[in-house]
Amino acid sequence: MSELFDRLGALADTLAATPILAIGLTLGAFFAGNWLFARIGRPLWLPPVLLSACLLSGVIAILAIDYQAYQRGASWLTVLLGPATVALGIPLYQQMHHIRAMWRPIAVTLPIAATLAAAYALVIAWALGATPEVLASLAPKSVTAPIAIGITEQLGGAVPLMMGGLLITGVVATLFVDMLARLLPVRDERILGFALGLNGHAIGTARAFAISHTAGAFASLGMGLTGVFTAVILPLVGSGIFNTG
C-alpha cells in the first residue's frame, strides 16, 4: 500500500515536470469558461476570459501547483502571442477599404483618444499615489495583450498586474460603450466598433463582432491602430516619466 503512495508522489512529480499539464489545464479552463458563459446566458459584464481565468486559478490553487512551474509550462502556449500579433495584420488589410473611406475621422481621433486612454489612467493613479511600477503596468491598459506585454516589459511594469488591468479595462469599456451609445446618442456602427476596439482591445472587439460585421471590422482596426500607436509612443515618452518616480 505504501508503495502505491510512493508511486502516487512520483506521478505528481512526473506530471508537474511536463508542460503538457499546464497546457491541458489552460485548454480545459478555456473550454469550461466558454461553456459556463453560454450556460449563464452570455452576460456582458462577465466575459469568458474572466470565467476561464478564475476557474484556472482555482484549480492551480487547489492542486497546489507551483505558480512559477505553471507559467513555465504555459509559455509553450504564450509564445504563440508573437505570430498571433502578426495575424492581426490580415483583418487590417481586409478592412483597408473601410479605413480609406473613414481615414479623416480615424486620423483625427486615433492619436488623441489612444494617448488619452493611457493619460487619464496614469494621471488618476499617480494622483492616488501609485508607484512607478504600477503606473508602468497600467499605461498600456487599452492595448491588445500581445503588444501590451512588450510595452510593459520595456517600461519596467509587472506583467500580471497589467494583464489584470487589461481584463478589467476590456470589460468596463464594453459596458461604457453600450451605456454612452444610448446616452449621447451614437448609432453609427463604425463609430461604436472603433470605440470598442480602441478602448477595449480584444474583449471590446469580440463584443463588436456580436453587434455586426462592420462594427467588428472597425473594432479590429481600432485595436490594431491603438496597439501600434501606443507601442511606438509609450516607450518614447515613458522612459522620461517612469524613471523619475
Partner: peptide
Amino acid sequence: ASQGLISVLVLLIMPGVVGVFFT
C-alpha cells in the same frame, strides 16, 4: 491561419491573467 490564431487569443492571454491572482 490568422483567423484561427485570433479566435484563440483569449486562450493565449489566460496564463498572464491568472498571474494577477498569485502576485
